[in-house]
Design a protein around this nucleic acid. Structure first.
Length: 417
RNA sequence: GUGGGUGUAGUCAAGCGGUUAAGACACAGGGUUGUGGCUCCUGCACUCGUGGGUUCGAAUCCCAUCACCCACCCCA
């Protein structure tokens, strides 16, 4: 147990970390071009934030949060998602006083108590963006377009964009009635949780995990078919914008976001190449979240993108991720005098911007060359008594196996080439 | 929460009730008392996830347990 990471967590090892850095860098660059600014919020928040923001009838809040009491008797929860904390910071620091809309991005770990499987972990990582302060469907199209372009810039193709509208509180109330009506004579068959949901939030019944509920819900009416005029117009606006941007999509009325705060636009980028958990990126609009947690009436729209799933997808489609460069110089030193000299030389080279390494395990010359080879050194500098006496070193080009004597004062110059 | 699969060295893996648990890669050392990648040699599991049981005898059969993987569901 001591030497085992907790279930559902993964170490990102030194040999793999360049992949993370790569996608994060590409994301940061995209954010810069799309003019999104990074925001960093705490790993944990007051539990109440998520109960209110995500919704206390959601699976996430009901059974997936890592919640604990701290020593000051506060109920604390590890972030299960990225949007609520950003909204909290936006309200707390009155960022709505800045020029609007506000555009933020973040790269964060999220925590949900789930049963792990391919593409689903208990600690996972998201890159996300949020746009606060505009109702205009241009923002929704921008957010979707961002995701689409970012994914494309990684070389990812064959992702399917699915969009839907899940309405606003107004039309949703109507829809709830339609749904209650549909479920009325099925009520007795529902599980206990869903009996409670029937009054509070019948939409949640649609994604209950109980098999009996699943069966009862077959053939239920779609939200998309019961939108109010405003939402209907918004959805058609969105489609027009996406068409204008030449972004392909399919309308999927089955998309029901598992977070209560979503309104109107809901979308997903889905792959069929990484197993059952195919949603690489998901998001939508949340017009009342900010007031819901005590802020002004400011609408928002954004997405979350799963880094682990992104990497799974890139691996599945055999996309090349540029690896870090090799070692420039290995210093093979023989004898104490040479080692002292090498230590100083290594430091000078490093300070000069050159990637340099030497042996610290007391390997013999052959071992040191072998080590240099393993490190993929471009050059190996050999320093021994002979060289020191003559004020030279040997520099060997590891690719061509050619070697030459170089005066000590010319090392830097020689290595630069 | 429900179901399925797998567990032999760092990794991949043979073994399928009977003397010392194949092999490959990796790793370490050596073949030259100052030169790598190739090659050759040597070393590297008192033990087969763990705990019980059956048996003269178990990595091999049974039970339990744990871990990992996958799927349902949900989502990133």
């Amino acid at each position: 147990m001591l030497t085992k990471a907790p279930k559902g967590t993964k170490d990102i090892l030194p040999g793999q970390v360049y992949k993370w850095q790569y996608v994060e860098n590409v994301f940061r660059e995209a954010c810069s071009r799309y003019v999104f600014k990074e925001i960093r919020t705490p790993v944990f928040e007051h539990t109440e934030l998520f109960a209110r923001g995500v919704g206390d009838t959601t699976d996430i809040v009901e059974k997936q949060m890592y919640t604990f009491e701290d020593y000051g008797k506060r109920s604390i929860t590890l972030k299960p998602e990225g949007t609520s904390p950003v909204v909290r910071a936006f309200v707390e620091h009155k960022l709505y006083a800045d020029v609007q809309p506000s555009k933020y991005f973040y790269i964060i770990p999220c925590f949900r108590y789930e049963k792990p499987q391919s593409g689903r972990l208990r600690e996972f990582h998201q890159m996300g963006i949020e746009v606060f302060g505009t109702n205009n469907m241009m923002a929704d199209a921008e957010v979707i377009g961002f995701a689409s372009d970012f994914l494309a810039s990684l070389g990812i193709k064959e992702l399917e964009l699915r969009i839907n509208s899940i309405g606003c509180p107004k039309c949703r109330e109507t829809y709830r009635e339609v749904l209650r009506d549909f479920l009325k004579d099925k009520y007795d068959g529902l599980c206990d949780t869903c009996k409670g949901r029937y009054d509070r939030n019948p939409m949640r019944i649609l994604d209950c995990k109980s098999e009996t509920c699943q069966a009862l819900v077959q053939g239920a009416p779609y939200m998309l078919d019961h939108l109010c005029d405003e939402c209907k117009d918004a959805f058609s606006d969105l489609k027009t914008n996406l068409d204008a941007m030449e972004i392909e999509y399919i309308v999927d009325p089955g998309i029901v976001r598992g977070l209560d705060y979503y309104t109107k636009t809901a979308f997903e980028f889905v792959s069929n190449k990484i197993g059952a958990q195919g949603t690489v990126c998901g998001g939508g609009r949340y017009d009342h979240l900010i007031e819901q947690i005590g802020g002004p009436e400011v609408p928002g729209v954004g997405f979350g993108l799963g880094i682990e799933r992104l990497l799974l997808l890139m691996e599945a489609t055999e996309l090349e991720i540029p690896e870090q460069e090799n070692l420039d110089v290995f210093i093979a030193a023989l004898g104490d005098r040479a080692k002292k000299y090498g230590l100083k030389l290594m430091r000078d080279l490093r300070n000069d911007g050159i990637k340099a390494e030497m042996d610290s395990l007391g390997r013999n010359i052959k071992g040191q060359f072998k080590y240099a080879d393993r490190l993929h050194a471009k050059y190996t500098i050999v320093i021994g008594d002979d060289e020191l006496d003559q004020n030279t070193v040997s520099i060997k080009d590891m690719r061509t196996s050619t070697q030459k004597q170089v005066p000590i004062e010319d090392i830097q110059k020689e290595v630069r080439e």
